[in-house]
Design a protein around this nucleic acid. Structure first.
Lengths: 109, 109
DNA sequence: AAACTAAATCAACGATTATTGATATGTCAA
DNA sequence: TTGACATATCAATAATCGTTGATTTAGTTT
């Protein structure tokens, strides 16, 4: 499903899912300082080519990275918007009030 | 593994994994406004008892919720610290520089 | 063109995660 | 103390996700 045809919850799930894998976090850490080509990532992360490609696709589908092709190389870069989005989703999920259920209340009436 | 005996990356993965499921996001949304008992969650989210219990445990293991027992009921509440933590992890993963690879650079030398 | 390279995709398998129904544990009420 | 209830845990199954090796797609070099 395209990102913009997704419920808020589905989008949250997609974003956080993309962030919930060691290899992908490793990729993101490598891209923190700027754009990298796939072969660089491969060497440094010590990941088989198709494995890396798989994770890059998950990140790309989630909008966390963008890619550009230059000759026979592909370069990947982090997308700030996705991080803004994740942060704002987190803020929405954050607890608001201190407590609403008074101790001693009955539930399951 | 206990949360405090975990690498930064492993912790990031655990937190984001806990956030990457529709049912769990649903639970979090219900807890935004304060503490709730399990039976409330069950009714509203329309989830089988053991299923809910499973997801609550994932959230609890990740430190996203805390629980307390009162008589035969269990109450769950969001833990602000986990949200702070997730936010700060997100900030660390965020891109720093604009671009380091100049166009036309060669890689895979 | 032919050979070579970087990267994406695919199919098969293995691993992890989620769901379900059954059972266990602790608490309350009759 | 017996029965009902709320929740947790467990074992089996189903579904999803990640890995691997092979193949495909482009682009480059000779």
């Amino acid at each position: 499903m395209p990102v913009d045809a997704m419920s808020d919850t589905a989008r949250a799930v997609q974003l956080f899912h993309a962030l919930s894998d060691e290899t992908r976090v490793g990729i993101i850490e490598m891209l923190e300082s700027g754009e990298r080509c796939v072969c660089d990532l491969q060497d440094t992360l010590n990941a088989a080519q198709s494995r890396l490609s798989f994770h890059l696709r998950v990140l790309k589908d989630a909008g966390i990275v963008t890619d550009r092709r230059e000759g026979r190389w592909s370069y990947y870069e982090l997308n700030r918007d996705a991080f803004d989005e994740a942060e704002s989703i987190l803020k929405e999920l954050r607890p608001r009030a201190r407590r609403t259920t008074a101790r001693g209340d009955v539930c399951c009436g």
